[in-house]
Design a protein around this nucleic acid. Structure first.
Lengths: 339, 339
DNA sequence: ATGAAAGCGCTAACAC
DNA sequence: GTGTTAGCGCTTTCAT
């Protein structure tokens, strides 16, 4: 009752060689010319003994693990876990299993996870790359394991990637604020070189430029990943008290939640005194007294495309590296209202 | 530059047998009496060729995959992704990798994931079991794969589990409302047989009973997983309009977010008109105009204990099934204020 | 001190 | 039609 039953057990039970059983298992009884009666017998034995294939052995033999590695900054972050869910479903649909690792925006940590995943023979890697991980990604590609980048990307690194139209979305968000009569618009973002945040910043600047509003670097508040709440409380608090800001554009949901807390603490009314637009969504946005206007990322599409690209490579595609850019959706609610 | 380098490649490069290389790799050069010079040579070759062990092969040989399977209801739910992160870190620390699946509270789906994971030879399974999965869990245990249940549990199923003191926490939460002068207290929960929700309900009832407040079944609003927002909007909305409710106890964060939206829609003021206490936490609770009083689950401890139990079993413990129950923390803020 | 070889469970080419 | 066997990469026993 105890040990796992193997091909051999089934074969012995029927009194045939393991090859026949293998053929039947893989639906090759026709090609291999297994007699119908034998096929039936073997099928019965498989069912009776409740045979379950050992996928590790299969993987060793075939060189395919049917596993996709997913490395995100932090799986406990709702944005990444939402993507993970989409990727999981999509992978499952195609017979793949997901192994997940969190790299905390840290290239060394990411490197370690990559190594472990590669040694486990993942068939492909989908990742949100940390800063400074270009080199290691290149190495992985050299070893012929497909990589698909999501959310972030790097210039001059030939690798498949799925991105969002960060620039355009940010531009639209800030233009919306301007159209609502705001001109003293601050931006809250991370102190980071990640290109997607740079793009959002450029979108913000472009919106100002298009309306002849001078860009004031001092109106960009930057937070660090490590002590975000503190940075935002200090930086944004200072700015709000002194600069006569009438709108804020947040570069992502985490920043927005931190920033809205500051607004609350200072008793500043949204949108009467300060209008707000944020990148990403959050449960908290719905419950805020002034439901937050936000830019919705196409999470579903990102996940699906990433898996599609990965599987395409696994199946041998050697096309040039592809970059897919997906538009975001702008959801207007109350927080961005005109004065 | 291309193919993966195997033990054989290293051995050939040095001109020795693969056994020696294997010994050195596993730090057994002393026990096996490999000469120091040879050890050095082999070490150099390993480094030079950048040898990476094939963990699949190792797993096939050893019967250990060094993989833990985690099955949750939905990885995109922040509560589960937070636990997943803790488990991931803990597993990594012990040299294990996590494969993750979402079962959507569905026993059949869970069953499928379990099969896939078992066929991949996971060394243990940590799961939030769906209703009706006792049977399949028993089967897994029979096959000698350790299982640890988290969050939920079943009576009369001998299996390791990590739980929270649901009854006591709910009791404390509702007593707090009563002490704040509320007596017309509704509860919002799921229409489910899951025991941890039953426990929370019992805690609610006990608090009423201790204060001679008659229990009114009509004051329990139940939602389904499928159309939660609709159910809560209808059920809770109806109750609020007709029953003179002065407080609500929410059985988890998702329910609370849905419920608070209803309160907002009806223009009901928290806590002046209706006081609120919720199980679980949520970013949204901080941003609500009246920061929500809640019961914080010991996510860190749950994850760590679960991994500890799993690894303990993997290492051969055959002790009786253990049940660990961890207390929750009550965080008082404004939403539960007295009238 | 080192090598040869069996075997983990499976696939597939080849032999009968 | 069915059986035999090599081999995927590794560990480990047994010989030498």
């Amino acid at each position: 009752m105890n040990k796992r039953v193997s091909l051999k057990d089934v074969a012995q039970h029927v009194g045939v060689s393991i090859a026949l059983v293998s053929y039947v298992l893989n639906g090759q009884e026709k090609e291999k010319g297994v007699s119908p009666e034998m096929t039936v017998k073997i099928r019965k034995a498989i069912a009776k003994l409740n045979y379950q294939p050992n996928l590790v052995a299969k993987g060793l033999k075939s060189g395919k693990s049917h596993t996709i590695g997913l490395i995100v900054a932090d799986i406990s972050n709702p944005f990444f876990s939402a993507i993970a869910r989409v990727i999981e479903d999509e992978a499952t649909k195609h017979g793949y299993v997901l192994i997940i690792g969190s790299c905390d925006e840290n290239a060394a940590k990411s490197r370690h996870i990559e190594d472990v995943f590669l040694n486990r023979q993942v068939d492909a890697l989908i990742m949100t790359p940390a800063i400074g991980s270009q080199r290691q990604i290149k190495d992985i590609l050299k070893r012929k394991t497909p990589v698909v980048l999501i959310d972030r990307y790097f210039d001059n690194l030939k690798v498949d990637s799925v991105r969002v139209e960060n620039y355009q979305a940010a531009l639209a968000g800030v233009l919306h604020l301007i159209n609502n009569g705001r001109r003293r618009i601050a931006m809250v973002t991370y102190r980071t070189e990640l290109l997607h945040f740079r793009d959002r910043r450029e979108g913000y600047k472009a919106a100002l430029a298009q309306n002849d509003i001078p860009f004031n670097p001092g109106w960009i508040v930057e937070g660090s990943y490590e002590k975000l709440d503190h940075d935002i409380a200090t930086g944004l608090g200072q700015l709000l008290r002194t600069a006569g800001i009438d709108a804020i554009f947040f570069a992502n949901n985490t920043l927005a939640v931190a920033g809205l807390k500051v607004l609350n603490a200072l008793g500043i009314k949204v949108p009467d005194q300060v209008a707000v637009v944020s990148f990403d969504e959050s449960e908290a946005f719905d419950l805020f007294y002034s439901p937050v206007t936000y830019i919705r990322q196409p999470i579903e599409a990102i996940g699906k495309e990433a898996v599609r690209m990965a599987i395409d490579r696994i199946q041998g595609s050697t096309a040039d590296s592809r970059m897919m850019t997906i538009p975001a959706t702008f959801i207007v609610r109350e927080s961005s209202g005109s004065k």
